[in-house]
Write a protein that binds this DNA or RNA. Structure first.
Length: 137
DNA sequence: GCCAACGTTGGC
DNA sequence: GCCAACGTTGGC
């Protein structure tokens, strides 16, 4: 099972908003970046991801589950863009801040650190395990 | 709110 | 196909 990271500005659509959507989840639409689209194309139902608050918050706040693989973005008329559907899985016992991630050498290669502008990112199994262990400690 | 970094666009 | 100009993102 693969892991990913979804970024969102809490002022626009935050963790609480996703939780409010419940089991039905949310179409992760509006992504207009080829790299991010390609990442989403690789996602499978059942894969999991982190939910990260950008701009204000700057922390991983919860985990999500992919509930629909990549499909055409309903907010896009050009037919170029795709999105997946996700639902909130679990909140992290302790949110993991960007500072913590930067401070941990095991997480130095996270895309979040290397390419902070990419809005949908892959996360390795090793990185996933480290963050989860920090979050549950 | 600022500005650096990045991606995209469009003129040539 | 190059690259300057522009728009957007996100950490600070």
């Amino acid at each position: 099972m693969a892991h990913y990271l979804f970024k969102s500005e809490p002022d626009v659509f935050g963790w609480d908003d996703l939780v409010a959507k419940g089991e039905a989840g949310e179409e992760w639409d509006g992504v207009r970046n080829y790299q991010a689209r390609n990442v989403m194309r690789g996602m499978e139902v059942g894969d999991t991801g982190f939910f990260y608050h950008s701009r204000s918050g700057l922390e991983i706040v919860g985990t999500v589950e992919i509930i629909a693989a990549a499909h055409p973005d309903s907010t896009d008329d050009s037919g170029k863009w795709e999105c997946v559907d996700i639902r909130a899985a679990d909140p992290l016992l302790r949110p993991i801040s960007l500072d913590q991630i930067k401070a941990d050498p095991r997480l130095a290669d996270m895309v979040l650190v290397k390419n902070s502008r990419l809005s949908v990112q892959p996360v390795t199994d090793a990185q996933w395990d480290v963050v989860m262990s920090l979050a549950e400690a």
